[in-house]
């Protein structure tokens, strides 16, 4: 199994090395182009320029292959093929890449894998390392969602709040907004913010209807719990009846004892 601390250190070192090499190749190319004839380089700088170009192309190709390899991991993780996914991610993270994309994707997929393996601490650490990098616009939202969920499972509510706060400041797609709502309700139930959980309840119910069965049931179970705690019994009962139609109580309440407690009560 890949050691998370080791992989984060290697990831940082590889990124620095790649940036250095990119800069060296670009400076070399500029010198050959502009100063080749004056410095008396072989073929007026043409030969070294061709060499630099060849190195760039070969390394670009390797990076592209790495990025393509990295893109296969999520489907392996979704299919529960963790061992194969781990091997693939390891090879992506070990190989040299001239560009950042393959390495960033590799680390993100490792965080995803650790999350699927329920290794919350490692997943949170990997997300933290990724979020410390600049220019990860495309990855930052999914990494923040992953981090919010991992820290929530760890009981690190301060970490969750930080991630949720960062997500509120981003423009989210529909799927991300749905994931955020579920996290927000889970967090709200842990701090007992019942009234806040019920703000814009109509919109939250509509968004829940767009989720897959288990998430739709869980999201509405949190809303039912909030309505129950806030004494809005008609709403609580209506939500609970919907929840019971969508999924079974043990499945909904997995890892959420507060929901198990509510669903065990008769009201």
């Amino acid at each position: 199994m890949i050691s998370v601390d080791g992989v984060i250190a290697r990831f940082r070192r590889d990124l620095a090395l790649a940036a250095l090499l990119r800069a060296a190749l670009m400076v070399g190319a500029a010198v050959c182009l502009l100063g080749g004839p004056m410095l008396g380089l072989s073929g007026d700088g043409l030969v070294p320029l061709i060499l630099i170009g060849a190195v760039w192309i070969v390394l670009s190709y390797r990076s592209m292959v790495g990025a393509r390899l990295a893109s296969d991991s999520p489907s392996l993780i979704a299919a529960g093929n963790f061992e194969q996914a781990e091997k693939q991610i390891d090879s992506v993270l070990r190989s040299f890449s001239l560009f950042r994309t393959a390495k960033l994707l590799g680390l993100h997929h490792l965080a995803l894998l650790r999350h699927a393996q329920r290794r919350w601490r490692e997943s949170a650490l990997l997300c933290q390392a990724l979020l410390g990098q600049r220019g990860i616009a495309d990855l930052s939202r999914s990494t923040l969602l992953l981090m919010a969920d991992s820290t929530l499972r760890l009981g690190d509510l301060r970490g969750t709040l930080w991630a949720l706060d960062a997500l509120y400041r981003q423009r989210l797609g529909l799927a991300e907004a749905l994931a955020l709502q579920l996290l927000q309700l889970d967090y709200g139930s842990r701090i007992g913010a019942w009234e806040q959980m019920l703000s814009c309840v109509g919109v939250k119910v509509q968004l829940s209807e767009l989720m897959p069965s288990i998430n739709a049931a869980r999201s509405q179970a949190f809303l039912a719990l909030a309505a129950y705690k806030a004494g809005r019994m008609e709403l609580a009962r209506w939500l609970r009846r919907r929840v019971e139609l969508l999924a079974d109580a043990p499945e909904i309440a997995a890892d959420r004892p507060i929901l198990a407690e509510m669903l065990a009560q008769a009201w």
């Binding site: 190319a29 004839p37 043409l46 320029l49 170009g53």
Partner: peptide
């Protein structure tokens, strides 16, 4: 010929 070499380098740069 030297001017030709320089223009060749520039062309290569433009291509890349």
């Amino acid at each position: 010929q030297q001017l030709f070499s320089v223009s060749l380098s520039v062309l290569l740069g433009v291509f890349v």
